[in-house]
Amino acid sequence: MSQQALVASAAGDDPADGLRAVRALRELADRLEALQVERARRLGWSWQEIAAALGVSRQAVHKKHNRRI
């Protein structure tokens, strides 16, 4: 194994990489949620309908997004 491949494989199971991926996934999900909720509201969805689709309470989704939309 070349030194480069060795370094790459060693980095593969580094918790730091895994945690960075989790953080990035969360950020991506947050951004997609913001876009989707905004669009759903514009298309006339109620907070109740959006909450049901997201699998959270109406209060939670309202609190999180109402200020922006």
Partner: peptide, 22 residues
């Protein structure tokens, strides 16, 4: 940036493709 291109690629997500579709 929190939306880390390399970190997402490591778990099989192509951020360019996600960006394109979005």
């Amino acid at each position: 940036d929190a939306l880390d291109h390399g970190a997402l690629a490591a778990v099989g997500i192509d951020l360019d493709e996600v960006t394109r579709r979005t």
